[in-house]
């Protein structure tokens, strides 16, 4: 049996951490696109559109991420699609992210004063123009800190994808543990690596919060 030094463990974990980062970025970017689409549907749409988006959010916020991943992983093949853990993880996390982001952003859009809608209507703007030139620029400002804060949840969410067999940081930790019988060291290192990814994001979110609070006052 080969001997594992601490460096071997860290080195292999770092290689796996690339997949954690890549999956996080993918889920965050795709989730943002879907989330924005849902936000527009909800803001522009009729009562049924509002209900649909509300139900969507309730569904994803009211069930475990692991179940969502299982349903995607076992459900998509029933539709005749051949899904790898990689695709299932991206797809599942994208839906999860979009539900949370659309809810965060809804709050931001609603916090834009009602007079702004009325004023832009009075100026003869249509919905696209209102959104593009009046509402979103103001909402975006409030939205940035909680959005950055939520990115930490996305990174942590990627750990759950290890359960459907996607080899990222946590899965690599389990595999290395099985080879080294040193769970304390390995999972300790795994936790440190997650911390190194997440903590800067948390700090940045807090920094933005302070900055924007200053601006709006």
């Amino acid at each position: 049996m080969p001997e594992f030094t601490l460096w071997d463990i860290v080195h292999n974990l770092l290689l796996a951490a690339r997949w954690t980062v890549l999956l996080s970025i993918l889920a965050f970017v795709l989730g943002s696109i879907v989330g924005l689409a849902l936000l527009l549907v909800r803001t522009a749409g009729n009562r049924w559109a509002v209900r649909f988006v509300r139900g969507y959010v309730e569904l994803f916020q009211g069930t475990p991420l692991l179940m969502q991943l299982f349903i995607v992983f076992f459900g998509l093949p029933l539709l005749g699609l051949d899904v790898s853990p990689w695709i299932a993880a991206t797809f599942g996390l994208t839906l999860f992210t979009s539900a949370f982001l659309t809810e965060i952003w809804r709050g931001c859009v609603e916090s834009v004063a009602k007079g702004q809608w009325e004023a832009s209507t009075a100026l003869g703007m249509n919905f696209t123009q209102q959104m593009l030139y009046v509402i979103l620029p103001q909402a975006l400002r409030i939205a940035v800190p909680p959005t950055v804060g939520f990115s930490v949840q996305v990174v942590k969410g990627t750990a759950v994808t290890s359960i459907i067999g996607f080899v990222e940081l946590t899965k690599a930790g389990t595999m290395i543990t099985n080879a080294t019988y040193a769970p304390f060291t390995v999972y300790g290192c795994v936790a440190v690596l997650y911390f190194l990814i997440c903590y800067p994001l948390s700090l940045y979110a807090r920094h933005l919060e302070g900055k924007f609070r200053h601006v709006t006052r």
């Binding site: 930490v152 942590k156 759950v160 930790g173 543990t177 769970p183 304390f184 997650y194 997440c198 903590y199």
Partner: peptide, 23 residues
């Protein structure tokens, strides 16, 4: 607070269940 909030629950669980017996 910062350690827990910036690491996944699953890893905390593994650390407690598989890691702590080493101590």
């Amino acid at each position: 607070v910062e350690l827990i909030r910036n690491t996944p629950f699953l890893v905390q669980l593994f650390f407690i269940f598989f890691g702590l017996p080493a101590l």
